[in-house]
Design a protein around this nucleic acid. Sequence first.
RNA 1: GACCCCGUAGCUCAGCUGGAUAGAGCAUCGGAUUUCUAAUCCGGCGGUCGCAGGUUCGAGUCCUGCCGGGGUCGCCA
Length: 582
Amino acid sequence: MTALTAELGAIVAAAFEAEGLAGTFGRVQLSDRPDLAQFQCNGALAAAKQAKTNPRAVAEKIAARLKTQPMFAKVEIAGPGFINLVLTDAALEGRAAKIASAPASPNGKSAVIDFGGANVAKPMHVGHLRSSVIGDSLQRLFRANGWTVTSDVHLGDWGLQMGQLISEIGHRGIAPIYFDENYRGPYPKDSPITMEDLEEIYPAASAACKAEPARLEEARRATAELQAGRPGYRALWEHFFEVSKVGLEREWGSLGVHFDLWKGEASVDRLIPALIAMLKDKHIAEESEGALIVRVAEPGDKKEMPPLILVKSDGAVNYATTDLATILDRVAEQDPDLILYVVDQRQHLHFEQVFRAARKAGIAGKAMLEHAGFGTMNGTDGKPFKTRAGGVMKLYDLIAMTTAEADKRLHEAGIGADYPAEERADIARKVGIAALKFADLSNFRLTDYVFDLERFTRFEGKTGPYLQYAAVRIQSILRKAGDEGFVAADPLIRSDEERALVLHLLVLPEKLAAAEDNRAPNILCEYAFELAQKFSRFYAEHHILSESDAGVRAARLGLCALTLAVLIKVLDILGIEVPERM
RNA sequence: GACCCCGUAGCUCAGCUGGAUAGAGCAUCGGAUUUCUAAUCCGGCGGUCGCAGGUUCGAGUCCUGCCGGGGUCGCCA
């Protein structure tokens, strides 16, 4: 489905060219003044500026040519030289029917999207919510727009926290066999520690390292030994990974987030020696203060650019190194056009360093490297979201809390009182997740936002539940229409409400493109909300099932079906499910 | 100290590569219902776009400086 503005833009561009002006002036956009027009072209102003003539005169010439096109109901010049365009209802109707049925045709481009970023052995917390929700939405969006996407969870499983865990377990004497240097294996198949153990051990280990420098030193040594391949530590690490994965899959599963690859820092470990050798050979890497570094500062830099630390003075690598190796891995495996990192904005400098090093080393292939950062989720006090006790809230608890709130709302509204308990629970879950995701996605990525459960779960206003409700109502109408044996036909425009709704439906491709260009799902949130509003307006003004004229009824049913299809498509890109009924 | 992000209505936030009268939700005030799910719809109220300069025919948007909030700055991720 080509965007309508692109179709119009081509026509207007031809008009400019016919006047001996550059076609690029013909760009058409949605009107800023919906009361005056549907679309507009501002090119006459720019063209006149360049040609040093009167913008209105240029606009007049273009408009005269456009008026010969039968698709325009109105071509007007306004203000200093805006060309306002209104399409005929027939032109709108003719394009409407096709909008939802258009499948994504492959665009020949591929992307690796790196998000999730949970750590092995640490429970997911609210900080992982944004990466998961935004990243998942972007992978759905890119796929919907024809990209070949490979999503990778990129687990944090190779850094200091692994050494901290190992040394803590060593201290506790839980599994001595893994620490026996004379033991030659094999190691037990079953993990000596459970997920619950890990949730307790990691904070303890982390605290110990903070309190005692000697413990930190020990953890560093264990990290370096793990990375050097000490068998007992590797075996222990395998257990950490497997045990953690079960828990992480469960949590992402409840959010409806899936990854194509469950790789992590450790999975590129094998590539690191060659990477380092290559960087040394090319004299990109150099020794400094006992560490091996890559200088990434460039002459024009406005800010200080610290070097990237490839190998720490204790011999261990850190995540800059694994990130570089991961680029190598992705180029070898997927050779993508784009690698997109959906990671907290606070890591922006890190990515800049990695990207520069990758460019210097020439390892990124044809891939554009891009960091799509995001801001933090704050509490109502404006500070990073915490539990009442002041601790970090686990994602699991956050989801449980949201689901419970959704359930409460449903109960208060008397919804589903007569539904089976199982269905009610399913609705509460979907509504809770929708509330959470929509709230997160409807803010622009980079801005921080305030978590307000009460507000997010409301059915009124710009919320996930409102959108679900709108979709459910349409489903209800279509179900009843089916019961009555009514059939749908292509939509017709017979009123302002219908015209506004059809026009909005037609604008979907523009919004999908804009959301992709800006890596900004909030554009789709806005679109979906406006769609639901425009539908509600239409719905309030027109009867559908009780309409006696079968033709009108069929056209309105068609408009309902089309709206539903688009709404569901957009909600799906946002990762929001619509219940059958609610 | 340097750099990055943010500062728009009472509150929470949009505003795409500068364009016509700065938008939405909530709150508030008023109206619509023998509902195809009113969990809805319609209307009113509400803003010196942090401040001061600059570029431009035109600036919330671009540039400079300042103020305020958050963040980052060589061996954590």
